[in-house]
Amino acid sequence: MTRTSARPPIQAGYPMLGSHGSRAQWLARLTALGIGICLIYPLYLYLHSDDIAPDSAWGYGFAICGTALLILVGVSYSVRKRLNRHAPIRLHTMLAWHAVGGVVGVLLIVLHSAGNFNARSGTYALYGLLAVALSGIIGRLIDRLCPRLATAAAAQAMTEAGEDRLYALEQKLEAAQQLQHARRRARRPRKANMPWDLAYHTLDPENDAIPGLLTHETMSGTGFVPTRAWRYVGSHTAQLLPHQRPFADYLHQQTTLTRAAMGREQFYLHMVRVWRRVHVLLCVAALGLLIWHLTYAAMLLLDAR
């Protein structure tokens, strides 16, 4: 990787509500808007006619178009995502049409219901579909917000050099302890035949050594957080010398802040993925209700003959 980028730097940043929709998203939205505008007049005629009912000709029309559209957007996106990854249409484009088609499909089903909530199966199926569409819309908001919050939290849990803060201070403490060992060894008179076995010395900061490492020399200006040191400090607060207390407090504060940042990062990232499952689960439940309603409607039609 030796490519040098001659392109201009971007000052885009990562604003909380930034990034406009893509071309594919706008195309899908504008197409839906165009179709909606074209349907205003026929809708006006329907809403002023004498036959506003789910089982009117218009009602059936809305039901068939809405159901077909919903099945199309759900199935086409899932198939493209799982089975057809090398298809020429981008998954992003499919998702844009999925979202717009989902909203339009549910609106068509709302028109099919025509404010008639007598049939239990139909009402539940309608609520199910509304819940799916609503979860999709909320999901898109979560997709926008949560990654941004997770990024802010990740930035807090890292040092400026891109190190994990907790890990970085442990490294720093280890280095400080090695230095301390080396100084002690240098001061100690060397006996004849004493082996220079460096592997004998553990590289981990031992608990006993941690208070000694809580000095200005080790801690100042690092912005690092030691997990093991903090665990020690937490259980031996009474044994700390007065000059070690400011650093112990600093450790406490930094560890707490970093742990909280890491927890927040995990939470926001999980939120995106968990909500996706909620959307799919609601979709499965709505499909069940839809099948129930279609069976019920089919039986009514057969009985009427």
């Binding site: 980028s5 392109r7 971007i10 930034g18 990034s19 990654p147 997770a150 990232l269 995106v272 993925r273």
Partner: peptide, 21 residues
């Protein structure tokens, strides 16, 4: 890792919503 971000990559980074796919 390196250098300034080009507009298309910056846009992609903004749009990525961490779905894990």
């Amino acid at each position: 890792l390196h250098g300034p971000l080009s507009p298309d990559i910056a846009r992609f980074a903004q749009r990525c919503y961490q779905c894990g796919a």
